[in-house]
């Protein structure tokens, strides 16, 4: 790993968006491959953020600033990756369920999934079941990821899965769920295919589900 990529990882960990933008440009100026900058600069930084967060050495505000930093870097790389025809490993549709407007966790999963090589379709927050169904029809994703932050709105995850079943689309997608009050038992109970307890583990889950499908 060249030092510019190491410094890029460090900028992501520190949440220094200004510096990360400069470093991405510098790496590109050096003729480095956008995929290399993503995989060996931005992503390892964010992976380390995930590790520190789970260890309790970083808190949500710092994680958000790191995510914003990675996002700033991704914004520069995205068109270049697309132009280079970089192979995507699958498509993920993400949304926060009906009645719930918390999107921090969902956005984090989206950004990290994009970093991992997925096409991410973010359909927003307070998303009713029919919009998840429309998104399945339109984008034919491998995976639907649903988020809820409140016990009040968790029930909407089950309702959404039922609506997807009734629309005859359940076998077309894998469905994963997450959010602060959600647990694995709840995910099983509502017949989701998986549960991510945090953003990095949700992305790992997406990878294993996409490779199995």
């Amino acid at each position: 790993m060249s030092s510019v990529l190491e410094r890029l990882s460090t900028a992501v960990i520190a949440g220094d968006a200004e510096n990360s933008v400069k470093l991405v440009h510098r790496a590109l100026d050096k003729g480095m491959d956008p995929k290399d900058i993503l995989d060996n600069g931005l992503v390892p930084g964010m992976d380390e953020v995930g590790i520190r967060f789970r260890r309790g050495d970083m808190f949500v505000p710092e994680v958000l600033m790191s995510a914003d930093t990675m996002s700033a870097g991704l914004d520069i790389l995205r068109p270049l990756l697309a132009a280079a025809g970089t192979q995507l490993i699958g498509t993920v549709v993400l949304g926060t369920v009906k009645g719930d407007l918390h999107d921090i966790g969902k956005n984090l999963v989206g950004m990290m999934a994009e970093g991992a090589g997925f096409e991410v379709i973010d359909i927003g927050f307070n998303v009713p079941p029919e919009r998840f169904i429309d998104a399945i029809k339109e984008h034919q994703p491998n995976i639907i990821g649903m988020s809820a932050m409140l016990t009040t709105t968790m029930r909407a995850m089950g309702h959404t899965i039922r609506a997807i079943e009734e629309a005859g689309l359940r076998d077309k997608v894998k469905i994963i769920v997450g959010g602060a009050p959600v647990d694995a038992e709840f995910a099983t109970r509502i017949t989701a295919d998986g549960y991510g307890s945090n953003a990095p583990s949700a992305v790992e889950l997406c990878k294993s589900l996409a490779s199995a499908s």
Binding site: P61, M65, L101, D103, I104
Partner: peptide, 22 residues
């Protein structure tokens, strides 16, 4: 709390992330 820890600009940005949809 955030302002003490992260400065005014980042504190406001963080709160925007949390509360902008309310």
């Amino acid at each position: 709390e955030y302002r003490k820890k992260y400065g005014d600009k980042d504190a406001m940005w963080l709160l925007d992330q949390q509360y902008r949809h309310y």
